[in-house]
Amino acid sequence: MDDARLDHFVVRNGVRCAGAHLIIDIHGGERLDEIEHIEHTLRRCVDAAGATLLHIHLHHFQPTGVSGVAVLAESHISIHTWPEAGYAALDVFMCGNADPDACVPILREAFAARRVAVSELLRGQGV
């Protein structure tokens, strides 16, 4: 095993893993069709998590909806929105010292969500 790689692995809830992958559902959200707001929100998430932004790519669908990804040195944040339903699906996967949990309150506030559901997967266990 390459020892240089080990510094990016984390221990979360007592489990050694490659990182935490949060599956986040926004229900009753607002501003889910505003691409500039979404980009600003992703940048706020990156900063709050202490992650390193490499690139953001967002696509605005017609008539509505946004899909995109913030590529991070620590992995990624992806978003897919259905503004007409007030729903957004996000994946927040981070390794190393980045804190994916820091994104949840930012997303809740930025989209004025009525409900936020979060599931966690610990990726790379046993590697």
Rank of each mutant, 00 (worst) to 15 (best):
L42T: 09
N97C: 08
V69N: 06
N97Q: 14
L42I: 14
G65Y: 08
H27W: 03
H76Y: 09
Y87A: 05
T81K: 02
M94V: 12
L32S: 02
V92W: 03
L58M: 08
S67W: 02
A20N: 14
G19P: 08
A88S: 11
V92T: 06
A48M: 07
R44L: 15
C103Q: 06
A51M: 11
R16E: 11
V71A: 09
A73N: 02
I23H: 12
L32E: 01
V92Y: 03
V46A: 08
H55E: 15
V71E: 03
D99H: 14
A88E: 12
D25I: 02
I23A: 12
G86V: 12
R16H: 06
H21S: 10
V46S: 08
V104D: 05
C95L: 11
A20H: 03
I24G: 01
P63C: 06
C17P: 05
A89G: 02
V66D: 04
H76Q: 09
I77E: 03
E39A: 03
D101M: 12
E30S: 11
I23K: 15
I24C: 04
I77V: 10
D25W: 01
A48R: 13
H76A: 05
D91M: 07
I38E: 00
E36T: 14
G50W: 13
A85V: 06
Y87W: 10
G68M: 10
M94D: 08
I26G: 00
A73I: 00
A88P: 07
S75F: 04
P105K: 12
E39N: 06
E84D: 15
I26H: 00
R44N: 15
V71H: 03
H37D: 12
L22V: 09
A48C: 11
G50K: 13
H37S: 09
G65I: 09
A88L: 07
E36C: 02
E34S: 05
P100S: 08
G68F: 07
D99Y: 07
D47N: 09
Q62E: 13
H21W: 14
V15Y: 00
P63D: 03
G28N: 10
T52D: 01
A70H: 05
C17G: 04
D99N: 15
L72W: 07
V71R: 12
G86H: 14
H80Q: 11
H21M: 09
C17E: 04
H57G: 07
A89I: 00
G65D: 13
I23C: 02
M94H: 10
P105G: 08
Q62M: 05
F93T: 11
L72F: 06
L32Y: 01
C103G: 05
R43G: 05
I23D: 15
V15F: 05
